[in-house]
Design a protein around this nucleic acid. Structure first.
Lengths: 209, 209
DNA sequence: ACCTGAACACCGTTCAAGT
DNA sequence: ACCTGAACACCGTTCAAGT
């Protein structure tokens, strides 16, 4: 996976862009847990300390990664349909995009957020709820509530990795008086459709209250 | 913080209970990030390797901690009121309890869950929705949707630490065309009341759909 | 100016000892 | 049986070099 050799020249062969791109490759393939300065340096065939010339410390690298991912966020839905449909579409798209980059969720949880892309979604959401006759105070509450729902779903995703599913299921079933009932109830559960249905339910309720 | 000295005797002075209790003290005061085998050992005045006699590895210690916290989960509401009120009460109580132990949320996110306490909440929730005329398939979806909402709220908590709030606010406001509107909208936002209102809205909608 | 190497203070964990 | 010490393979980061 070494994309650059340090052998040829001595002069600058690293840039912030290159470092961030390498960091992203590492995070994408091994998760945030596997993201280390030394690992990124190895990815680039450089000495670990070379990284520090382009990034203040590990925290700054992580924030740069967050920014990088934010660039790829799907665009907000334009006109068409009801505000409810647009809101569902927007949050479902954000959820789907971030689900493809679960490692980011761990960073988001550390209290970071992607501005300005998060800010754009926030204001856009205020506008949608304004169309539904809600003021910005109500819109803010609704935005937070929708975001919690999405963040919770994303946070739960690592647990549904196929190899974990069976073990969790058994743990759950065996802890209860009627294991058969639990197994039966969970059998047909699909988190994606449950997520979407719940999102629709929540948006409609927020619009109607 | 050393609660036991290794000096006096040579024979067993550690037990699994003692190790787990020390681990919990460390996690509670420094978070999961500060939880290290070596730190726990120091807390007990023991050699790091002594820990491994009572706990297989760090992962097992973490699971034991999860179990320990689960013991303190609030009891499920008994009869009285509508199912909706009981459901809101139960999930709000779980949220409040875990909010007092935020470090646990990081573990939950790693895909672990507390059985059998989680199982009890799950089955209890199925029962409540059964009273509302929903079958276990619908109840399972509702449980997942409520849990995502709670987990998202808990995941968001570290970001509202007082010292972070102002910085986040500015980052958000400055990223947008109309900073004044954002500041005004967010001014009166209170995440606890927003959480509770959203929970009520969601439960009522799930009951009605 | 940019990269490197050695070093420091940390990790989890194994293994061979001590009592 | 239980605890300890040295050791190994990792971290992030600082500092003094090299070109």
């Amino acid at each position: 996976m070494v994309t650059r050799a340090s052998s040829s020249g001595r002069r600058q062969f690293l840039t912030r862009r290159i470092v961030v791109a390498a960091g992203r490759r590492v995070a994408e393939s091994e998760g945030v847990g596997g993201l280390t300065i030394r690992r990124v340096a190895a990815e680039l065939g450089a000495a670990p300390m070379a990284i520090y010339r382009h990034v203040k410390d590990k925290q700054e690298l992580i924030l740069a990664l967050l920014d990088d991912v934010a660039q790829g966020l799907p665009p907000l839905p334009a006109e068409g349909g009801t505000p409810q449909e647009r809101i569902v579409g927007a949050f479902a798209a954000v959820d789907a995009y971030l689900a493809r980059h679960v490692w980011v969720v761990e960073i988001l949880r550390q209290g970071e957020l992607f501005a300005p892309r998060a800010a754009a979604l926030f204001v856009w959401t205020l506008d949608q709820f304004a169309e539904l006759g809600k003021d910005d105070r109500q819109g803010t509450d609704a935005y937070a509530q929708l975001w919690w729902y999405v963040l919770g779903h994303l946070s739960y995703l690592p647990g549904v990795a196929p190899e974990r599913r069976a073990a969790r299921m058994e743990l759950l079933a065996s802890s209860v008086g009627d294991p058969g009932r639990v197994r039966e109830a969970v059998r047909s559960f699909g988190h994606e459709t449950a997520f979407l249905n719940g999102l629709r339910t929540l948006v409609d309720a927020l619009a109607a209250r």
